[in-house]
Write a protein that binds this DNA or RNA. Structure first.
Length: 861
RNA sequence: GGGCGCGUAGCUCAGCGGUAGAGCGCUCGCCUUACAAGCGAGUGGUCGGGGGUUCGAACCCCUCCGCGCCCA
């Protein structure tokens, strides 16, 4: 701990503090985290904000971290980037609306709860109010009711969230912790359901029975945005179909889908197959008659150039099926296995061999059968090809026809697509080139946004269906929850006009069984955080927000879906700026992630180098740029923080204080130093306004080191005196310290606050960002620059003579261009003291400034 | 295959039309009363290759090579 805390009784930061004997970084985090919490230093002043113009509020749409996940250094970096901006805007006098959220909704939480407690959700079970999970997860997962499962999710995420908050406070995030939201909260659920109902009412959401990409492990539909291609081994099987004039050979990687074959397809220009178009062929083994059709998506140079269309092997099949209006012969069920009964028109005897099998074993069996029948030509030819996976899944996706909810996103509507691209152009992207990621994605969409998921933990659709006399649901007339009742859980709540005992009985009703995609909730983070559903006055003030910070990997998901929702509901972009941070990568330039095993635990690094050092390193990563994790860099940040403590102690130990003002600065070199600082302030401010915190820090830091190594060394002796010159130095040092502490405060919140507290009232983080106008004008920056240059040459002479910097100089003769002579003379007093120069002569001459240094005889040499 | 970004000192990166820069590293010095968790000095690059524009190119244009990310 810092040595001086006993003197601090007041809750106001800084009041009554003194400069410690031996300043240290140790313990600053604990001290100031507690002090900021007590003093509500980062509280959002709602009333003050609402009574001021919108331009005086700065609202941030913070990414809610996945509460069940774990944080690594990459997270610390990107959240620090945002915090630097937040702190800057606060110091500019803005009301900073900077809430934190937790994403405790969705699959990661569901999976973590299953593993942590050893349970699984079985929606058919009744709620058990006395249920307690086992101490240790058992070998087999314990089936529990949906409501019990959800309760465990909430219990576990609350623990995780408390840990996260502790870490974020230690990182120094200037979040208003009274405004935390959760994506699974009542408010979030109500917001998501209300927005969905609005989308539905305006025709922006709809349900449709359609072929859907399906993860057989999670047994849920997945959206285009959640897909990824993975290279997987496969094999082309050459199979003969019986054509009108002999066999037609196709090559397929999925022979097991033969019973699902509905046509063969070739490119319309392919002369080899033109004679067959309009004719029919018969499938081997099953002997089903299928047409030969032409379509531009068939690739002549792939395989034999003619392919079988199955319902459904891949997305091309879906396109062909839709555009060519082919029949459906689905064989794969929700569990990824071949369904029990063959499709219409497919003989049951052969199909019976496949029923109940997975794709893998069905393929093996089909290949055997084809060999026996002689329809398989040669051996399968191994290939590697891209296969679609759910990004969180481990088995290839199947395509299953199901009824799903969609929200329009321009994937099937050029006008909407253009409108959403135009929204993207309203956003200021930082860095600018990230805009292309957005436009590429929007322009490449091939379907609407599938938002329903067949999971248990999530926001349910506020929808029921009437059951007809036969007990079949009437999907065309969904029963919607009234907005006043939101949030609802349709599996326990009852639609208007019905009673609970009518659930599931003919003439009664059933609930829509699905929950929303996690992005369907996350895409409403601006609305949830800003009180769309709970505090319309606040929402009207802070929305559209100023900044959406996030990483570039979720532009297609989080960013895009947020734009879609805002476009529909509010007819505006959700924020004016999207700031995109890069990744922290390991030394091999691989993205740091827990699953790759190369993630560095943040707490360990924070403890070893101190928060300010880690934040300093984070600030060195420009917006959008990946940056390698290198501990050696942390030491540099730590050194900067220590330097601040020491120079602060020096300046304040001289008797410099906040009472000294610019008027006292009379010496040319002092005025020059402050003139130079004024340009630094201007540059840093311009850089911060452009979200270029890296540049702002660079400019400030360069000045700071030269301030310490040159200016302070030059004026030190004078500052120790007690004449007018001393007061000039002391005032300049005090002013420069004050300005520099404030310039560095967003990056180094702890050490700057510590030094600030030694001599100023209030928090540095509530102080105003410096402006050039608080510094005296008219100083000549060349005076300190030339003095430093001269001193450097004297130092070099001492260094080359292997002498101490304290070695005396008998005489130094400066030969300088005419215009510089007066500058050197203006710094004469400081130069002779700092260089320990007995006799300093300055003459005009040609060429650059030189110094002829004659060292005094060393006393005991 | 398409899009985007990047290739500058051993490492991390600035510079983006006018004489190659910083920090780290390394080498050599220095106990200097703010700081030895420090200070001073030095070392180090045909700015990925090739063409072009220009009085002048790391910077602009073309092309090639390599790396990364996103999308097919």
């Amino acid at each position: 701990m810092a040595a001086d805390t006993s003197a601090l009784e007041s809750t106001a930061p800084g009041v009554g503090a003194v400069v410690p004997e031996k300043p240290t970084l140790d313990g600053l985090e604990e001290k100031w985290v507690a002090r900021w919490a007590e003093g509500d230093t980062y509280a959002f002043d709602r009333a003050g904000a609402l009574s001021a113009p919108r331009s005086e509020t700065y609202a941030i749409d913070t990414p809610p971290p996945t509460a069940s996940g774990s944080l690594h250094v990459g997270h610390v970096f990107s959240y620090t980037h945002t915090d630097i901006v937040a702190r800057y805007q606060r110091m500019r006098g803005k009301h900073v609306f900077y809430p934190m959220g937790w994403d405790d909704n969705g699959l990661p939480t569901e999976r973590r709860v299953q593993n942590f407690y050893g349970v699984r959700c079985d929606p058919s079970l009744p709620y058990d109010s006395s249920f307690e999970p086992p101490e240790e997860p058992g070998k087999d997962q314990l089936p529990i009711s949906r409501r019990n499962f959800v309760e465990l999710c909430e219990r576990l995420t609350a623990v995780d969230e408390a840990e996260f908050e502790k870490l974020w406070r230690r990182v120094g995030l200037s979040v208003d912790w009274s405004g935390v939201y959760r994506t699974v909260s009542e408010t979030s659920r109500a917001t998501a359901q209300r927005m969905f109902l609005h989308n539905l009412a305006r025709g922006e959401a709809y349900a449709q029975e359609a072929p859907t990409l399906w993860d057989v492990t999670f047994r849920t539909a997945v959206a285009q945005a959640e897909l990824e291609d993975r290279e997987r081994p496969g094999a082309y099987h050459r199979i003969g179909f019986a054509g009108p004039e002999g066999p037609v050979f196709i090559e397929t990687t999925r022979p097991e889908l033969l019973p699902a074959c509905v046509a063969l397809v070739a490119h319309p220009d392919d002369e080899r197959y033109q004679p067959l178009f309009g004719q029919t062929v018969r499938t081997p083994l099953f002997d089903v008659e299928v047409p030969v059709v032409a379509h531009r998506l068939a690739e002549p140079d792939k395989g034999s150039g003619i392919a079988m269309i199955c319902t459904f092997g891949d997305l091309n099949d879906v396109t062909w099926w839709r555009e060519l209006q082919l029949p459906t012969r689905a064989v794969i069920g929700w569990d990824g296995r071949f369904v029990a009964d063959p499709p219409d028109g497919v003989p049951a005897d052969v199909y019976a061999e496949l029923a109940g099998k997975t794709s893998f074993s069905a393929q093996a069996r089909i290949v055997e059968l084809l060999r026996e029948s002689g329809d398989l030509v040669g051996d399968p030819a191994p290939i590697t090809h891209p296969v679609k996976f759910f990004e969180k899944g481990e088995r290839p996706l199947e395509i299953v026809t199901t009824r799903q909810w969609y929200i329009r996103n321009g994937g099937r509507d050029a006008d909407l697509r253009d409108a959403l691209v135009a929204r993207g152009r309203e956003i200021q992207w930082v860095p600018e080139h990230m805009r292309h990621r957005y436009e590429n994605w929007v322009e490449g969409l091939n379907g609407d946004w599938l938002v329903s998921r067949q999971r248990f933990f999530g926001v349910p659709f506020p929808v029921w269906y009437r059951l007809d006399a036969e007990g079949e649901p009437v999907f065309d007339e969904p029963l919607l929850a009234p907005e006043s009742a939101l949030p609802v859980d349709p599996s326990s709540d009852v639609p208007d006009g019905f009673t609970g005992d009518q659930r599931g009985v003919p003439g009664g009703f059933i609930a829509d069984p699905d929950v929303m995609d996690t992005w369907a909730t996350s895409s409403l983070s601006p609305q949830v955080a800003s009180g769309w559903d709970t505090d319309p006055e606040l929402f009207a003030h802070v929305f559209p927000m100023d900044q959406r910070p996030q990483a570039h990997d979720i532009i297609r998901t989080w960013l895009f879906s947020t734009v879609v929702r805002s476009h529909f509901e509010h007819g505006t972009v959700p924020w004016s700026h999207a700031t995109i941070s890069g990744f922290v990568v390991d030394p091999d330039r691989k993205k740091m992630s827990k699953s790759k095993g190369n993630a560095t635990t943040p707490l360990d690094v924070l403890e070893r180098y101190g928060t300010d050092a880690v934040r300093w390193r984070a600030a060195g990563a420009r917006p959008g740029a990946d940056s390698p994790f290198d501990e050696a860099q942390m030491k540099v940040g730590r050194r900067l923080a220590i330097k601040l403590l020491n120079v602060g102690k020096f300046v304040l130990g001289l008797g410099a204080s906040a009472a000294l003002t610019a008027d006292a600065v009379t010496e040319p070199i002092d005025r020059g130093l402050l003139a130079s600082l004024a340009t630094v302030v201007d540059e840093a401010t311009a850089a911060m306004d452009a979200y270029n915190y890296t540049r702002a820090l660079e400019v400030t830091e360069a000045f700071f080191w030269s301030f310490c190594d040159d200016y302070v060394e030059l004026v030190k002796t004078r500052a120790y005196a007690s004449d007018e010159g001393a007061r000039s130095a002391q005032a300049a040092l005090a002013l420069a310290l004050s300005v520099q502490l404030r310039l560095l405060a967003p990056v180094l919140p702890f050490v700057t606050e510590e030094v600030w507290s030694w001599w100023q009232g209030g928090s540095v983080h509530r102080a105003l960002w410096p402006t050039a106008t608080e510094l005296p004008t008219g100083g000549d920056r060349a005076v300190p620059a030339v003095a430093a240059e001269t001193l450097a040459i004297v130092r070099k002479a001492k260094s080359e003579a292997k002498q101490s910097m304290r070695a005396d100089v008998a005489s130094a003769t400066v030969t300088a261009p005419e215009v510089q002579v007066a500058l050197v003379e203006a710094a004469r007093r400081d130069l002779t003291a700092a260089g320990r120069i007995e006799s300093l002569t300055v003459v005009a001459g040609d060429g650059p400034l030189t110094v002829d240094v004659v060292l005094a005889e060393a006393p005991d040499a």
